[in-house]
Measured scan of single mutants.
Amino acid sequence: RTRTSFTAEQLYRLEMEFQRCQYVVGRERTELARQLNLSETQVKVWFQNRRTKQKK
Rank of each mutant, 00 (worst) to 15 (best):
L38S: 06
K44E: 13
T2W: 03
E31L: 04
M16K: 06
V24H: 06
R29L: 07
V45M: 09
F18S: 03
R34L: 07
Q42C: 03
F6N: 04
Q48A: 09
Q10E: 05
M16R: 07
R51H: 12
V43Q: 01
T7W: 00
V24E: 05
Y12Q: 15
E31G: 04
E15D: 05
N37D: 11
A8S: 11
V24N: 07
R51K: 05
N37H: 11
T41K: 05
Q22L: 04
E15Q: 00
T30D: 04
V45Y: 11
M16F: 07
T52N: 12
R34V: 11
K56A: 06
V43R: 01
Y12D: 15
Q35W: 06
Q54H: 09
K53S: 15
F47A: 00
K56L: 08
T52C: 09
R34M: 07
W46S: 03
V43A: 02
V43P: 02
Y23T: 14
Y12F: 10
N37Y: 01
Y23H: 13
G26T: 04
Q10M: 06
K44P: 00
R27K: 11
E28T: 07
K55Y: 08
W46L: 02
V25F: 11
L11H: 13
E15G: 01
S39G: 05
S5F: 10
R50H: 03
V45F: 12
F18I: 02
G26Y: 05
Q10Y: 02
F18G: 01
R13V: 06
E15K: 03
M16S: 12
L32W: 00
Q54I: 08
L38Q: 00
A8E: 12
Q48L: 11
T2L: 05
K44A: 13
Q35T: 08
R51Q: 13
Q35E: 12
R50E: 13
F6M: 13
L38K: 01
L14T: 01
F18Q: 02
T7Y: 02
Q19L: 12
R50Q: 10
E9W: 10
T30L: 04
R27T: 13
A8G: 08
E31I: 05
Q42R: 08
S39H: 06
F18P: 00
A33C: 06
R3N: 15
Y12A: 13
L32T: 01
R51T: 08
Y12K: 12
K56N: 14
L14Q: 00
E15T: 03
A8R: 06
T52Y: 09
K53F: 15
Q19V: 09
L14E: 02
E9M: 07
R34N: 11
